[in-house]
């Protein structure tokens, strides 16, 4: 791709830079003409088509689309868990070639390791990177931040759904990610817990300053959380529309402006017949 030349030369991330940096470390994400295909019994199955997307440092962007459209695939590419068939993904001018603790995913299921306590689950990143000894205090801080200090010694099967998802969030935040990738993280929670956790997510994001990329199929959630909602089409996913939400935080759920935006988004998804 020609556009690649406009990016500065890749430089290895300074390992010391992230540690203890605190807030304001959001990353700039660029997807340049990304297409992806799965191999389904020898037949190529196109999932993503010509995705061009830029997320500014510290921005909160939601990807919205019908289920099975390929949103999660795009997240896996951003996380570096898979490589795109075509096109390129860049963070802060460095090409994504594999997973990195600066880009952490929170999955729809908490995916906590059931044989580890909450504390040891949260410690996973530092332990895997061999820096657990220096980060002990940070793990406690983050558990306090998500309200799980008293459950540090509990095993995942002893947690409620919301608590488990908070633990998963803690496990991500311990790494001080500059890009937090949220793959329908609240999708399996009951609606009351979900409302609480949405507000918590916003305040975490405001406090830590990371860039957030959220996949959801909940229009209301996307509009409540994100500054920009990117609407994707059916598979193969293409970007259908981008809706900017200028409302400042904290937002109110009953805001008529959000209702208006919701109508627009549903129209983009072809679902406004019931409005």
């Amino acid at each position: 791709m020609v556009i690649a030349q406009s990016h500065p030369v890749a430089s290895p991330r300074d390992p010391a830079a992230g540690a203890g940096a605190g807030a304001g470390a959001g990353t700039r994400l660029e997807a340049v003409d990304v297409s992806h295909r799965f191999d389904l019994h020898g037949e190529p199955l196109p999932v993503l088509e010509h995705i061009d997307l830029t997320v500014e440092p510290g921005e909160f962007v939601a990807l919205l689309g019908p289920s099975g459209c390929g949103k999660s695939t795009l997240l896996r590419l951003v996380a570096g868990l898979d490589l795109p068939t075509e096109g390129e993904l860049w963070v802060d001018g460095r090409r994504i070639e594999g997973p990195d603790p600066s880009r952490v995913v929170v999955f729809q299921d908490p995916t906590l390791y059931p044989w580890r306590t909450v504390w040891r689950n949260a410690a996973l990143g530092p332990e895997a990177q061999g820096i657990l000894r220096q980060q002990r205090g940070r793990i406690e801080d983050v558990l306090r931040l998500v309200g799980l200090s008293t459950f540090a010694k509990a095993y995942p099967h002893q947690l409620s759904g919301g608590m488990a998802q908070r633990a998963a969030l803690a496990r991500a935040l311990v790494n001080e990610p500059s890009l937090l990738i949220l793959d329908e993280p609240l999708g399996k929670l009951d609606s009351l817990t979900r409302i609480t956790m949405q507000s918590e997510l916003v305040s975490l994001w405001q406090r830590s300053g990371f860039t957030a990329l959220l996949v959801t199929h909940d229009v209301e959630e996307a509009l409540y959380l994100a500054q920009r909602v990117v609407v994707l089409s059916d598979r193969p996913a293409r970007i259908k529309a981008e809706i900017v939400n200028e409302r400042p935080y904290p937002r109110r759920r009953g805001d008529p402006y959000l209702t208006e935006l919701r109508h627009r988004v549903l129209a983009e998804l072809g679902l406004d017949a019931t409005w």
Partner: peptide
Amino acid sequence: TYYDVGRTLGASSRFLVFKVAIP
């Protein structure tokens, strides 16, 4: 997804075998 989680958090394959697969 246990492996996906481990990989995004910076786990080596050694870590994935001994700290994820075996437990």
